[in-house]
Design a protein around this nucleic acid. Structure first.
Lengths: 126, 126
DNA sequence: CTAACTGTATTATACATCTGATACGGTTTG
DNA sequence: CAAACCGTATCAGATGTATAATACAGTTAG
């Protein structure tokens, strides 16, 4: 209950905007249930120090999440995840479709058969 | 034999650098066999007009491919794909690993089981 | 041969991303 | 209460991406 959102296992990938990586990490955590409604987020300053990025970059990610309704911020207090059923269903559908579609398209364009693609995903699962 | 590389089916995705999309399209075409050794590429000007982007953007993609050894350019004449066995194997491994790994990671982070992930890929295959 | 096309290069501009430094007022905590 | 932390905001600068307008020399085709 009201746990602190952990960024353990988060690693920065080169070439992709950092604020987008933070967005994706939090959305995927919410969809998987690792992050729950009411969980507190690390402050902008703390997270930026943890990730080694600028506070403004974290602020941009948090701000966009707030505009999507996944975060509630009150000036002076820590921000909190807001995850009602409707929002969760929307984000889940958004992420599932995007990830599955892009994966299928990439592997098909490489000339793989469906069976070969499934076998490859299975091999890289762990 | 020495066919012209076709960009039919190529659509610009927002948020990803255009020169990277051109790189990926040509690499995937080469790996799948749709593009073959010796095939002529559309000129920088023609392709930029076809895609509705700036010639410099196409030039950047072609230049990077030449640095990787996948394209041969001779000032004044059309550029040509250079796809020996070794290069193809390298690019194939590079793309397969990147695509499969990122897909597996994304779907697993969403809390899906391996079976659910495979079923999802299958659903979005066509 | 000549015109049209090709690769290559340069300069300027615009926008998004990221960083760095700083500041202000609100909230929490000892 | 007071110090420490918080969210928020602003300004400047660096870099990467993309556009726009040219220019020049080499190759190709009629």
């Amino acid at each position: 209950m009201t746990a602190l959102v952990s960024f353990e296992g988060f690693t920065l990938a080169p070439g992709i905007p950092i604020y987008q990586q933070i967005l994706l990490f939090l959305k995927r955590g919410a969809v998987s249930g690792v992050i729950q409604n009411g969980d507190e987020l690390p402050s902008r300053r703390v997270l930026s120090a943890l990730l080694g990025v600028n506070p403004n970059t974290v602020q941009k990610a948090y701000r966009m999440l707030e505009e999507e309704g996944l975060i509630a911020s009150h000036s002076g207090a820590k921000s909190v995840m807001v995850l009602d059923g409707e929002t969760l269903a929307r984000v889940r559908a958004e992420l599932l479709e995007a990830d599955a579609r892009s994966a299928a398209q990439a592997l098909r364009q490489l000339g793989l058969t469906k069976a070969e693609a499934l076998a490859l995903i299975e091999r890289y699962w762990e």
